[in-house]
Design a protein around this nucleic acid. Structure first.
Lengths: 149, 149
DNA sequence: AGTATAATGAAACTGACATGCATTTTCAAA
DNA sequence: TTTGAAAATGCATGTCAGTTTCATTATACT
């Protein structure tokens, strides 16, 4: 899957939702693409744009992120540090992936695999609950911090 | 395990941490005990106390909850509804339990079982991460809302 | 009792999130 | 192209849970 295909894909999604693919929205997406693997807050994105001499109103960035999340282009996560942090959603992922959060240095690592099938089946069987998505975070020490202890 | 034992246990914890077991702190714990299974925000607790003609400053309730969480007597969780909600920790639980959150009616159901052992082992083996705790939330439709669809 | 230390709570502050509104931009129909 | 309704933008401002300040009060140890 090349980059052009992905962009036209996203443009199409905007269209499907009746949103316009404006310059500002594209720039927000650019920043997110340029920082794959990072988890950026609304403010982070504003700052990164400022570094490139680009000024977009914070409310525009905020509204763009809400919009992108509605379209399932990005995913926002609360890492209990006071900010909602966003990252691009991997198209292959059916569900939200998981995060390893180091309680010492704050680093966040994505885990791609989805090993919750057994537990989900258990919940469906025992709680009669229709699961649509999940959020799973592990807190602990990353390799670096663990070695330093 | 009877109630008295539990309270003397908590008193002891306060002492261990160098905190005083004051009337206000006891009242906050009373409210939490009286609503096992609920997930109360700081404000919920203030309101429930007011209903009993008891007025405790919101900052005292807030500080008490932070303190109780530090002592691992309560656990605060962010359910993405704008509030941190607290519940008493079950002494038997080694890790945080899980939550089923209905995206329609907002009901929250606890899941006692801990079925993450396999996944935790996978993470330890593959990511060299020392897991201390986790937070797992499932979003979807509860039995009632599912039936109404 | 006297004193040092901690707790309390009213009030004010903080900061992320959210919105109102005047202006600007977009896009499709003319 | 031109045009105009609808959408987007961004400044300014509002909101509110969470947090801190500080004067007062309570607690515990000598």
């Amino acid at each position: 899957m090349n980059n052009n295909f992905k962009i036209s894909n996203i443009k199409e999604k905007f269209h499907q939702f009746g949103y316009k693919y404006t310059g500002q929205r594209q720039l927000v997406l650019d920043v997110l693409s340029a920082h794959l693997g990072s988890h950026l807050s609304s403010n982070d994105i504003c700052e990164l744009l400022k570094q490139k001499q680009i000024n977009i109103g914070q409310s525009t960035v905020y509204r763009t992120l809400v919009m992108l999340e509605k379209m399932q282009i990005v995913q926002g996560t609360n890492f209990e540090d006071g900010f909602t942090r966003y990252e691009l959603v991997n198209d292959n992922e059916e569900h939200t992936h998981h995060h390893l959060i180091c309680t010492k240095c704050g680093s966040i690592t994505d885990i791609k695999s989805d090993l919750l099938e057994d537990l989900e089946q258990y919940i469906v069987d025992n709680y009669d609950f229709m699961i649509k998505d999940h959020r799973l975070k592990f807190f602990g020490l990353c390799k670096n911090c663990k070695d330093k202890e």
